[in-house]
Design a protein around this nucleic acid. Structure first.
Lengths: 106, 106
DNA sequence: TCTAGTACTATGTATTGTCAAGTACTAAAT
DNA sequence: ATTTAGTACTTGACAATACATAGTACTAGA
């Protein structure tokens, strides 16, 4: 898969998935992987960045199946950000797709 | 506009526009700008890269309105590449959009 | 001759995804 | 008792690509 296409979009996907309900990192890797192929080492840095930027809050919880899980919870700022990025993506994708469709017909 | 979304997509747009007919750089900047906001200093490096990779051939032509123009012509390899990248983009965008639509409804 | 528009090039920077390796916990298999 | 597989997170070096800025140079009109 084209690596470049993912840039920025992974952030959007992570925001939307955490918005749904609180998630821990590993769970997110699996959830995002269902949509686009993605690497473990890609998701964790995004989570750290989005937390640093105030879009997520975190808390720890034990697990019976392995080590402690770090859960991510979206903040009000994160909700706003997810709406903005979603709008930008929708506008961008539809603009590109409109052109692409016209281009294919010719 | 979100810079990251453009990564990889600009290459696709440039390929499709040159596929239509031969173009020179400045013309491409304007054509791509109609689809997504883009910088001059972004398009020229893409043209150089795609030429180096054998997707474009170039030739020079004089102009009455300014300095010499460098025209880009798509090669057979470039045609193939444009088809591949287009397929990848279509698959990627529809996968993301399917998820996004489901996410918005909730 | 000065300015605006056209046309291309070069360079340094920032962002973000990938890869690889490492730590560490639990549970089941040997 | 030890090894292996699955879960869970972190870190650091690396690659790709878009942006900003600046510079060169040509033409035409004020």
């Amino acid at each position: 898969m084209n690596t470049q296409f993912k840039k920025g979009v992974l952030e959007l996907l992570v925001l939307l998935i955490v918005k749904e309900k609180d998630r821990y990192g590993y769970e997110l890797v699996e959830a995002v992987s269902k949509i686009v192929d993605v690497n473990e080492g890609t998701i964790y840095p995004i989570l750290k960045r989005l937390s640093n930027e105030g879009y997520f809050e975190t808390y720890l919880e034990e697990s019976k199946e392995g080590p402690v899980r770090k859960y991510y919870h979206i903040t009000a700022l994160g909700m706003k950000q997810s709406e903005n990025v979603l709008k930008e993506w929708t506008a961008f994708a539809s603009s590109v797709n409109d052109f692409v469709k016209g281009s294919v017909k010719k």
